[in-house]
Amino acid sequence: MALNTLEFECKAEAASVRLAAPVHYGVVGSGDLEVILEPRDLEGAVTVKITTPVAGFDAVWRKVLETFVNRAKLADVAIDINDNNASPAVVSMRLQQAFAETAA
């Protein structure tokens, strides 16, 4: 019954955007999530860790995260997510909002 943890690594095709500082965004409401983006020396890669009560959506998570990382051209970032049943659309939106915070 323990929480599920999903961890993987991905690499943007044109990885070039690095973060100056870590950022946290969101609240783990029902159907929502929070995310931390932290700069980390990963030889250009991005690591992802997702903690969620929902099992069995590994492929969906991977797809949503890869799309985000590619669009944002992220490099050398550790992404850490606490999820509570967020839909893929919400996940996408929160990631973009978190990323927008890094520019603010």
Binding site: A2, L3, V28, E34, I36, P53, N82, N84
Partner: peptide, 21 residues
């Protein structure tokens, strides 16, 4: 003890419930 410290509840983890940093 902000979110980057990741001091979430160990008890929610044990119950399989969503946690917050």
């Amino acid at each position: 003890a902000g979110p980057f410290d990741r001091m979430s509840s160990p008890h929610l983890v044990a119950l399989g419930e969503a946690v917050e940093f």
